[in-house]
Amino acid sequence: MLIPMQRKNKKAQAFAFFIAIATVILVGYALFTFITVENKVSLLITTPSGLIELYDETDRFVFYAKQSTKLTSQQAFQEIAENQDFANCQVFSGYMVIKDECILSKEELEEKFLFHINENFIKFLESYPDKDFVTDYEFLIEGDNLVAKAEEKEVILSPVGKDFPHSARYRPDFSFELELELKPEDFIFLYEKAKGCKAETELEKCMENENYSVVVTKNGYLFFDIKTKKSFFFTDEKEKFAPIEIKFALEK
């Protein structure tokens, strides 16, 4: 009597085991489908206005970051022109003295330019009202462009009414590129030009440039007062929209 019961139980246990495995597979499949479909449904049906708002916020921030970068690049150029702080170079009465040992390198200029951009850009980021969208940037110069690479940021959103009924993570791309109107290598170009024009009788004509106007005065030295033809926004003692000045002096 006992032996047939055991045989019956073994069959029942095998059946139970089979049913359990089948249930696990079904539940797993249901779980997978539920999660993937949930994402699609949320994106397609339940959150369009929430998504549009997110994209608009991203757009607004990128616009702000771009404008801030434009202003900080103008400020950076002005600070380099004003400080004239280069290795092996001297400054005489506010003019950088052109000498053989004073060599302006592209690397040094770009490093200074990017340093000033970073320094000022942070202040602009701090002023942006929606802190959820503020992210860190790394700036690079590639040709005539300033590339702003944004650190990957995850914006965590809380459920908001009917428009956005779920909590969500959003990874916007805040990176952008900006064409530089004032390039750090303009300093090298103008410096070398002033050096080369030394022997010319018509110095101003020799220095002629579509972006800069040059006035040369002779007083022991040759003083090159170079100004951008266009005005830019910058702050020295006060906030200004004015041409940026670069000053070189050359011993006669």
Binding site: L31, F34, I35, E38, N39, K40, S42, L43, L44, T47, P48, L51, I52, L54, Y55, D56, T58, D59, I156, H166, S167, A168, R169, Y170, R171, P172, D173
Partner: peptide
């Protein structure tokens, strides 16, 4: 457990999101 911990992820590259996106 999965629904509670794994919130919905929205990426700008998502096709569905791009289709929906239209600025105000």
């Amino acid at each position: 457990f999965f629904i509670a911990t794994q919130a919905i992820k929205i990426r700008p590259s998502a096709k569905q999101a791009k289709i929906l996106y239209d600025k105000i």
